[in-house]
Amino acid sequence: MSYGRSVEVVETAENVRRITITVNGERRVVEVEPRLLLAHLMREGLGLTGTHFGCDTTNCGACTVLFDGEPIKSCTMLAVQADGHEVTSVEGLGTHSELDPVQEGFQAEHGLQCGFCTPGMMMASKALLNRNASPTEEDVRWALSGNLCRCTGYQNIVKAVLWAADKQRLSGPAAAGDTSSEEHVS
């Protein structure tokens, strides 16, 4: 798969790699040019357009996904490097019928306006909550310090993450810090 086209139309197949990655719980086998960025594979190859490009220099965080559970900037990783790894994107948060507390929190606390940075913000937030079920405001601000938002001024984003933390704690230990549920969405 080169930039979302099938391998047949790639001008040369000399340099194409077959990789296997688990995306949002689903095993995917794709063929990629080595220079294809993971974020482009997500968007163009796999049709997961919730992962956004907001800069060229690894600053904005709009492309944040979880890579084996850790938040990374998918614009700064080659797709070929994801071979054999697990990637969770915004499309892997929650289920068809139930939102993840982070998603609920962002809506409940008006943590988004244009929505462009939101997927990255939510993935960075999810990574924080996976590791720290009871973050302070300072913890949240620190965890989001690699994600830029131009609309909200962050105050409501911080509230959204704290809201999600509360919700997750209240809904019992099974929910807190358990990432397995979200990774088995079909």
Binding site: G50, S89, V90, L93, G94, Q107, L112, G115, T118, M122
Partner: peptide, 12 residues
């Protein structure tokens, strides 16, 4: 906000 429903799902 009603528009949030799609944005928080990555479906903008």
């Amino acid at each position: 906000r009603v528009e949030d429903s799609r944005f928080i799902r990555g479906r903008g």
